[in-house]
Amino acid sequence: MSLTNDLIKQRLTDKFGEQVSAFSESYGMLSFEAPKEINLKVMQFLYDDAELRFQFLTDLTAVHYPDQQGRELAVVYHLHNLVDNIRIRFKVFTGISQPDVFTATRLYESANWMERETFDFYGVNFVGHPNLKRILNVDEMDYFPMRKEYPLEDQTRRDKDDEMFGRGGSVW
């Protein structure tokens, strides 16, 4: 029997119970989250389990949600089971004041640079990473540029419909 999203969900809840949560399916891909303390346990289980076999780390990145108190940063892992050809998305959330997440480099060699990139742009501190330093930006940089507090000029700003275009009204 080939692996399905329901089966993966079943296996995960059997193993971790309430700790794995927020299961959802977007565009066919199963997505779930777990507390950051057990991110390695979950990934190790996904890697080792004879049925699940998620042994390929496709992508690792972070997302910043400044409005979510205590869970501002999400580290997102895209894992791929190449045998059954099924992908899942796994997220762990962390507070921004102490963004410590365990590194996946022991499991996946490819996580090395991807975690460095994530650190570079979001400041996620991957605990246990062999060489956690900036990769694309200059070493002297003292902020994490992809965080939402550093906005670019909004090219689609809504204040530009109105006066400039003769529709009256002003946002100021």
Binding site: F121, I135, L136, N137, V138, P145, M146, Y150, P151, L152, E153, D154, Q155, T156
Partner: peptide, 20 residues
Amino acid sequence: TVGYIHRAFEKIAERRPLYQ
């Protein structure tokens, strides 16, 4: 060492409509 031509595409993309 990489990053010599980093152009912050991911950041720029957050302020652009899809076609741009």
